[in-house]
Amino acid sequence: MSAILLEVDHLTKRFGGVTAVNECSFEVQEGSITALIGPNGSGKTTAFNMITGYLKADSGHIRFRGDLIERPRPADLYRRGLSRTFQQARIFPELSVEENLVIAAGYSWRQLFGRRVSRADQDRARQILAEFRLESLLELPAADLSYGQRKLLEFAAVLMSNPKLVLLDEPTAGVNPVMIDTMERHIRERNAAGVTFLIVEHDMQLVMRLCDPVIVLDQGSKIAFGTPLEVQSDPLVLEAYLGG
């Protein structure tokens, strides 16, 4: 049951003279909620961008569900079941909440020429909004949502395609405490339903109660890996966070 879903192998990215991610390797086990933490500038988001095909790696490669991904491209990966959210909650503000969900559900070539929002699309969108208790927002333009609601909407949208692995980039940054609890609950529920998560997060309390294992990056390299407890007492991690 503990198959490796995502394998990151010696990934490297340099920006000019700065090596943002340096020979970074780690694995994400199927069914886990894995955390990727590290001080600011440790290369977490850069690693995310390479894994999801938004940034071309200088060297190294990734395997997803056992397949080597030669040229990671966001849309391909999305269809294979790997999706992500962004740190700044990227949604389509001009579209309605419903349309934001529908477009993320994916469509066949035939559906491309079909209705903008079909009856089946409506049902799916309603279903997930009910799960997120956001039914009342269905017809609103996404531009009218609060920041926390946008984060929830982006999260709900990436779930529309039934992904295997979801990468969340700081899912609770900048949202109120109630919303953090809501987000945590949804992650747990989805995880129980079989979705694997890889999460970049700065809220350590959340990481410690939600995630296992935890991967720690510092200056682009993995410096620790283990259960939250192990990582917390790791001298390298303490040094990276507190400075040495």
């Binding site: 999305y78 469509y107 070539w109 020429f113």
Partner: peptide, 26 residues
């Protein structure tokens, strides 16, 4: 504007990179 073509085009116009990320056939 009534088909998924229009819906997809709206996402391209709003945020093409994000559109790639939700599987739009950009």
């Amino acid at each position: 504007s009534r088909s998924k073509i229009g819906l997809s085009l709206s996402t391209v116009r709003a945020d093409e990179d994000k559109a790639h990320g939700v599987g739009v056939r950009v």
